[in-house]
């Protein structure tokens, strides 16, 4: 039996305070991953008044099991790294709002951040570090059945599909890793890939050969997910012949990559073709006083260490901007 202990001592010396609606912050940081937390530490050490608004602390890092390429740690659990980041940030008296997503950014000399619960906070500058989320298929049934057979985290939810038939959408690394996790426990796993080949690394494709309960459908796309209380079937279309068929499955894991959380800044800052925020080498966006860092930006290679570095840079750029304004 495994025990994945990752607990650092319960922090009792946190000094973060609730966000203040009446205050004009020097900088508000939106997001909760490594870019956002690094930016927060840099801002607080510079002595500027900073606020931090996020849905959750940790972002994608909190969903990662093992990390072996963040320097200083040969191996660290994602949740453990998040605790270290958060502990370092919360030692400062930073304004903190957790639990509600940013729905709107209003630009101007004084900028405003609007949250999904209606809260509004003002600042002279903004750092956007809102990261990525799982890309959705956007087919009928997906939203309604999420958490009822439609899933995005195979390591979390695989045990719930023991002895069942499941589909995995996506032939990249995440898709094939998910398929392997599921094949160990499910009755049958069907991988649905829109391309004519799998794009996962060779080691993973080799590893999947040892399972005889796995089927791969190349050149197929998902048209619909069917079910009432839970998923019953997935309708797929052969992209060559155009023929459709229904797969009898109780679960469908969607692993078709990530998309940036930029809905709240459409029309405010320039985005590229992938929907990412375009930044220059000092993390400036197209709007003066709005900076961006991490996976939400056009910077290539989505890595924790890169996001953290970009967060530091965005903070220094923002501090510079505040000083000059």
């Amino acid at each position: 039996m495994e025990f994945n202990l990752s607990l650092s001592a319960v922090a009792t010396d946190h000094r973060a305070v609730p966000m203040d609606k009446n205050k004009v912050y020097d900088v508000i940081i939106a997001g909760g991953g490594p870019a956002a937390m690094t930016a927060a530490v840099y801002c607080m050490r510079k002595g500027v008044a900073a606020g931090f608004v996020t849905v959750d602390i940790g972002g994608q890092v909190g969903e990662t099991s093992g990390i072996e390429n963040y320097l200083g740690f040969n191996y660290i659990e994602g949740s453990q790294l998040v605790e270290k980041f958060a502990g370092q940030m919360k030692q400062f008296e930073i304004g903190l709002s957790e639990g509600y997503a940013v729905t709107e950014i209003k630009d101007g000399r004084e900028k405003e951040v609007v949250l999904e619960n209606g809260d509004r906070y003002r600042a002279k500058s903004i750092i956007l570090a809102t990261g990525n989320r799982w890309r959705k298929l956007n087919v009928p049934g997906e939203t309604e059945l999420t958490g009822r057979g439609v899933a995005y985290c195979a390591i979390c939810d695989a045990p719930l599909f023991a002895g069942k038939k499941v589909a995995v959408v996506g032939g990249g690394n995440t898709g094939i890793e998910s398929a392997i996790d599921l094949a160990k426990i499910a009755e049958k796993v069907t991988v649905i890939q829109i391309l004519d080949r799998l794009t996962a690394d060779k080691v993973l494709i080799d590893a999947m050969q040892q399972f005889n309960n796995m089927e791969v459908l190349l050149l197929h796309e998902v048209k619909e997910i069917q079910g009432d209380k839970t998923v019953h079937a997935v309708v797929v279309k052969d992209t060559v012949s155009g023929g459709e068929k229904s797969l009898d499955v109780q679960g469908i894991f969607i692993s078709i990559g990530l998309m940036p959380n930029t809905d709240m800044v459409k029309g405010v800052v320039e985005l590229n073709g992938f929907g990412e925020i375009v930044v220059d080498c000092s993390c400036k966006t197209s709007a003066p006083g709005i900076f961006a860092a991490g996976d939400v930006t056009s910077v290539p290679y989505k890595q924790i260490i890169i996001a953290a570095g970009e967060g530091a840079k965005a903070a220094l750029s923002a501090c510079d901007y505040i000083l000059k304004e």
């Binding site: 495994e2 994945n4 909190g62 969903e63 990662t64 099991s65 659990e77 994602g78 949740s79 985290c153 390591i155 979390c156 939810d157 695989a158 045990p159 719930l160």
Partner: peptide, 10 residues
């Protein structure tokens, strides 16, 4: 929860 879920403890 499941025992293999990294964020379930939260």
């Amino acid at each position: 929860i499941s025992l293999t879920c990294p964020y379930c403890p939260d």
